[in-house]
Design a protein around this nucleic acid. Structure first.
Length: 103
DNA sequence: CAACACAAAGTAG
DNA sequence: CTACTTTGTGTTG
């Protein structure tokens, strides 16, 4: 399971409990699926901290290990992306995985 | 204290 | 219906 790997790697960083839970929950997103910030927040027992969830994604120290691009807004929008290319690249990756509806 | 990769409800049109 | 505003949450500076 990828989450186990993430948990092991996270142990080397000065992350808070909240960050670890969020990153692990994000790493557990199955390929081809998208999850909302709300879902991640609920998964870490902070259903009102969707904002804090976004903050964690931003610092995401396991960028290649954690599919932060699979996290979208609850209304279906992609939201934002701090990675290379911004939201454009995010959308491209989702299409590549089949998580986003093809035109 | 202010800001942030969000969400939901309220107000106004 | 859409658009704007306000409040809540956790971490960082």
């Amino acid at each position: 399971m990828k989450a186990a790997k993430a948990k092991e790697l996270l142990g080397k960083y000065d992350l808070t409990s909240f960050q670890k839970e969020v990153l692990i929950a994000t790493a557990a997103i199955p390929k081809g699926e998208t999850r909302t910030y709300k879902q991640i927040a609920a998964a870490v027992h902070r259903p009102h901290a969707y904002r804090a969830v976004g903050s964690v994604m931003r610092i995401n120290p396991l960028a290649p290990t954690i599919p932060c691009h699979r996290v979208v807004k609850s209304d279906g929008s992609l939201g934002d992306y701090s990675g290379r290319g911004g939201t454009k690249t995010k959308e491209r990756m989702l299409r590549q995985e089949g998580a986003l509806a093809r035109a």
